[in-house]
Design a protein around this nucleic acid. Sequence first.
DNA 1: ATTCATATTGCTAAAATAGCAATATTGAGC
DNA 2: GCTCAATATTGCTATTTTAGCAATATGAAT
Lengths: 239, 239
Amino acid sequence: MNSLPAQPNQSLIDGVRLLQRLAITQEPLAVTLLARELGLEITRTNRLVKTLAHLGLAYRTQSRKYAAGPAMHVLAAQSLFGSGLIQRALPHLEKLSSQGHIVALGVLWEDQISYLYHWSPGLPTYAGLGRVAVCPAERSGMGIILLAQNSDEALASILRRHRSANNSSYRKLMINIRRARKTGYGEFMAGNSRSLALALGTPPYAALALSGRIRSSKVAQKVAILSQTKAAIEEVMNK
Amino acid sequence: MNSLPAQPNQSLIDGVRLLQRLAITQEPLAVTLLARELGLEITRTNRLVKTLAHLGLAYRTQSRKYAAGPAMHVLAAQSLFGSGLIQRALPHLEKLSSQGHIVALGVLWEDQISYLYHWSPGLPTYAGLGRVAVCPAERSGMGIILLAQNSDEALASILRRHRSANNSSYRKLMINIRRARKTGYGEFMAGNSRSLALALGTPPYAALALSGRIRSSKVAQKVAILSQTKAAIEEVMNK
DNA sequence: ATTCATATTGCTAAAATAGCAATATTGAGC
DNA sequence: GCTCAATATTGCTATTTTAGCAATATGAAT
């Protein structure tokens, strides 16, 4: 993202990754699992997680597993403001409600999509916040368009590190990614539900999606609507 | 918050503090200022901030100042879910709208209150999110009730580290804190606007407030209403 | 252009961490 | 309850990383 400093601090880098991993699921995780998932040594992981626990950012259960701690509320408040994306995007996302589809705003982390907003018809607008955990990027329109920004090598390196090594799903993903690069939008089908997504920002920092039973004949129209919202959000973000 | 690990990682601790400091204001900050504010050495600060910049969590302006970076959106999405507080509190906060006052949900960090939610009459519910930056804890009902949880020594240590060393304001704060400990709610007057706040959770992890032109005769009634909301939020948080 | 303030890096002493091996703790199965 | 196996945690010291000085670079202001 930026030039490496003279002395990049590996403890900070991996500590933040652990923090992020703890944040995205509710279930408490064992140190061994955390270490394996992030490719870290166990003792080191244990100490970093305990440091996070000391800060209140992690919480140790009786069975010595770790989950998000109470200071996560503090970090949420701070990063919510620091990001400013939800605050500025919400008025525009709300306007998409009338489409009758799921509306989502998400970000890519490693090989996962996290949702800033995930709204289904019938819910009040405010209920879309922090409602949904994560989705594997390869099974998400947003994931596909965000992954598509990477070079094939960078992509391979991301995917190699995660269980996504499965060959058949990898090939499917690459097909979707190549199409996304050509069309400019991410598309993923799950059963007869279609997810359409556009990236926000250059370089992209988030993505925007509509999901539901969208017929092929309506795709261009829905993408055009997403484009308007994309432009509107990018405009307020560039101020 | 938790027992110190065998090898607490100071880089992670201070790196996270820097991250938090960058998140809570929009203006880019010079390294010197960051270092002074957090009581850190300049070279170290420079390297930690550059590591954050490498992760995308900080952004370096042309004039070599640092602000929140694009990965802050990612952290916001993750911590929003990891915290779960906004998601679960919003339906209850919305019910407070009919009171005709400002409704807020905030957290304490060092000597500052950050807002998860800060809603004013006339706004849509969703607009209360991430709208307001920070407020010095000593000038906030929420700040007072949250600071009141600390022992006098812990309190002195928090305040000593910050510019709040001002004697007259310190004395006023202590009066407010002692009253809060007795009454169980935080109260702060700014002009003729009154702010009333209750802490959430044991130990408290956040606070809830109503602010506006609240007459003395109405205080007990408003505190009772806040208590109901507090109980409702605590209940959903304990599941 | 020159000056000043601040950011950044090179360098090495000093301090913190890594990671092994040992120990402690917990949960599962008797 | 007891034993065993799996996992977490810590003590220890070699190794690595960081701290912080001094030097340099980079901008901004004049």
